[in-house]
Amino acid sequence: MAPALPREILICTIARLLDGVRHVAVGASSPIPAAGAMLLRALKESEGAAPVKISILGSVEHNFFTNGSTELFDCAGQGRIDAFFLGGGQIDGHGNVNLVGVGDYPRSSVRWPGSFGAAYLYFVVPRVILFREEHTPRVFVDKVDFISAPGTSEPGVYRTGGPKALLTSKGLFSFDKEKAGFRLESVHPGHDLTEIQEATGFGFDHDAKPSQTPTPSPEVLSLLRGRVLDELSETYPEFAAQMRQTLTEREPVAS
């Protein structure tokens, strides 16, 4: 079997971060988080564990809402959603997320789509996973230009949710709510601490020699390359086809 692709390591890491959730929601245009959630569901099913519910926005087969686009937020407000993913044009060292733009608001020099539901979901979803593949100093900044959603809140502000982890193409960080800062938990194969420090515009805690992000077992990989890619291709046909293509090129007719 071909060794794990970098994106497969990300998907397996997401499945690990989601362990224990009952209901995970995935936003539009998020194939890797969706694949991670589907992988967790398949793993739980094979273990005979309690089922994992997934709501994928923009999917027909994996979206059960019948009360319009408000239902996701109503669900989250009641604590019916355990995990969600957020990206961000900018993310800073305190876990603040900017989805609006660069420069002086409102006349942003670069304008992104906007905050979507982040200014709410970040407060009420217990396990928010920040996911951004691009790991550069322009994304991971010292201070965001606009706070779409804050990493932490003042005492007394109602907050049942917030960031738990930050996953990038280079490494995995955890978020410490008390310190309002990140800690590098592991470095993905092929990357190192110095490279991550140079690519990150904020300081973070880390071990002197951070561990490497685990690579998936052959069993997990075959589940991912079979059932999960099949399920994923309903919502993200191009992404699933591209991954299959890459895998075929890696391992021509070996099996």
């Binding site: 905050s115 200014a119 709410y120 009420v124 706070i147 779409s148 804050p150 809140s153 003042e154 502000v157």
Partner: peptide, 13 residues
């Protein structure tokens, strides 16, 4: 009334 928003620049503006 709604939860969330406090501490955001969305609310500030």
């Amino acid at each position: 009334p709604m939860r969330g928003l406090i501490g955001t620049d969305v609310l500030k503006n």
